[in-house]
């Protein structure tokens, strides 16, 4: 109770002094960070600011955006999902096998491989949620373990081989462009809108915030929190599967390594975008901005010609800076 009171005083004291309201500033801070980054990179290398380069950034960002949107729902609930690397690998490999088995081109029944992969993703997420809720294992541990199971499963399925998807129609995700941007960018955009719809227009979406904002309260008001959690993980699994499909569309290869690096990128993106790890705050638009920040940094560092050995260090520092600037740390009294 004491904590609650002290936070209220801090916020009320801070408000009148700021020229622009603090809330508004915090809301737009991640976007400002993104714009400032773009401005800096453009000043250092004017070629950064071109449609073709933005298309390149968006191609790289699309699969990660889907994964990050999935995990956003979980983080809003105040939990975490670290199973994405395994789930993405399994979905990619399952898609590839099913796609080739059914004919190997989108023009045949092989298109069924797309919903199949999403089903696999949802199923993995469902199991993940059940393990977390039913066995009362912290989401951190349950999902991390499920991730390893997924990676192992993908390894067993492929025997360490790569599966190539050569179908021109499926690869048009990358090769066909509308207004300078490949189709996969628009697909990612559509699923982002779907995520936004779920977040704002459905009971489930609002329940995520209820659980994250105060689980005790949510339980006391009669919400079946266990159900919300399992559904959340299932939904996240489906978005991971979409990320896997776009990743395969981008490289044309499904393998155990398809899921590599998604954990760091997506969690970083969500946090940098201003969604708080303690739950209840943020949403899919924050995640979009967060993903763009991470990939603009990634791309920009190579474009301005920063030497490889300093890039990782700079990325780490920029991420910390972005979190400092874009999250409301005054309203919390402790960090775990």
């Amino acid at each position: 109770m004491a904590t609650l009171q002290s936070t209220t005083t801090v916020t009320t004291r801070a408000r009148p002094r700021a020229a622009i309201s603090r809330d508004a500033l915090l809301k737009w801070a991640p976007l400002l960070v993104l714009l400032v980054l773009c401005a800096i990179f453009t000043l250092m290398e004017p070629r950064f600011l071109s449609i073709r380069n933005f298309a390149r950034i968006l191609i790289a960002a699309s699969p990660a955006l889907m994964v990050a949107v999935g995990v956003t729902f979980i983080i809003i609930m105040g939990s975490i999902d670290l199973s994405m690397e395994g789930t993405v690998s399994v979905c990619a490999v399952a898609f590839a096998f099913c796609f080739l088995w059914l004919g190997g081109t989108l023009a045949s029944w092989a298109w069924l491989a797309i919903p199949f992969a999403m089903l696999v993703g949802g199923l993995l997420g469902f199991v993940n949620g059940l393990i977390h809720v039913r066995l009362k294992i912290p989401s951190f541990m349950a999902s991390l373990a499920m991730g390893f199971v997924g990676t192992g499963l993908a390894m067993v399925m492929t025997g360490g081989d790569r599966i190539r998807i050569e179908d021109e129609l499926f690869r048009s995700l990358l090769t066909e462009r509308i207004l300078g941007f490949p189709l996969m960018v628009y697909v990612a955009g559509l699923f982002l809108l779907l995520g936004w719809f779920i977040q704002t227009r459905t009971t489930l979406g609002r329940n995520f915030y209820a659980v994250g904002g105060g689980e005790d309260l949510a339980v006391a008001s009669g919400l079946n929190v266990a159900r919300v959690r399992v559904l959340g993980y299932t939904l996240a699994g489906v978005f991971f599967a979409v990320g896997a499909l776009l990743a395969v569309g981008r490289i044309g290869i499904a393998e155990t390594a398809t899921g590599n690096n998604f954990m760091f990128i997506s969690i970083t993106a969500v946090v940098v975008g201003g969604t708080a790890l303690w739950g209840g705050i943020g949403g899919v638009w924050n995640t979009l901005v967060g993903v763009l920040i991470v990939f603009v940094i990634d791309n920009g560092m190579v474009v301005i010609g920063l030497p490889g050995y300093v890039q990782d260090g700079v990325l780490g520092i920029l991420v910390i800076l972005a979190v400092i600037l874009s999250t409301d740390r005054k309203s919390i009294s402790f960090v775990k």
Partner: peptide
């Protein structure tokens, strides 16, 4: 023109090459 690590990784290589195309065209 440039030598960058891509960590033996297909996806990282993909991103680095894209950025090279922006810088050097």
């Amino acid at each position: 023109l440039a030598a960058e690590p891509a960590d033996w990784d297909t996806q990282k290589a993909n991103q680095v090459m894209s950025a090279f195309l922006t810088r050097y065209g």
